[in-house]
Lab assay of single mutants.
Amino acid sequence: TQTTHELTIPNNLIGCIIGRQGANINEIRQMSGAQIKIANPVEGSSGRQVTITGSAASISLAQYLINARLSSE
Rank of each mutant, 00 (worst) to 15 (best):
N11C: 07
Q35K: 14
K37T: 13
E73T: 11
S72Y: 08
I28E: 00
P10A: 08
G19W: 01
I36V: 08
L70C: 14
A34T: 13
A39R: 07
N12F: 04
L65D: 04
R48V: 09
V42L: 08
G44Y: 14
S46D: 15
I14T: 07
Q35T: 12
M31G: 05
E43N: 11
G54D: 01
T8F: 14
E43T: 08
V50K: 02
Y64A: 15
R29M: 11
N40K: 13
S45R: 08
G54E: 01
G47D: 13
R20K: 13
S58E: 13
H5T: 14
I28L: 08
A39S: 13
G33P: 00
I66F: 04
S46W: 08
G22F: 05
G54H: 04
I14L: 08
L13D: 12
S72G: 11
L7A: 03
N26R: 13
Y64T: 15
I52S: 03
A68Q: 15
N12H: 12
I36Q: 01
Q49L: 13
I36K: 00
N24R: 14
A39M: 09
A57E: 14
N11W: 04
A56K: 13
T8R: 11
G47K: 12
I9F: 14
N12P: 07
I59E: 02
G22Y: 04
L65K: 04
G44H: 05
I38W: 03
P41V: 06
A68R: 12
R48Y: 13
E73D: 15
Q49M: 09
Q21P: 03
S58N: 12
T53S: 11
E43Q: 06
Q2L: 08
G15M: 12
N67Y: 12
Q63W: 05
N40G: 13
S46H: 07
A23L: 06
E27C: 07
I59N: 04
T3W: 08
A62Q: 01
L7M: 14
A56R: 11
A57H: 13
N11Y: 03
K37L: 08
I25H: 15
G47C: 09
G15W: 08
E6G: 03
S55L: 01
T4F: 07
R29C: 07
E6I: 14
G15V: 03
I9H: 11
T3N: 14
Q49I: 11
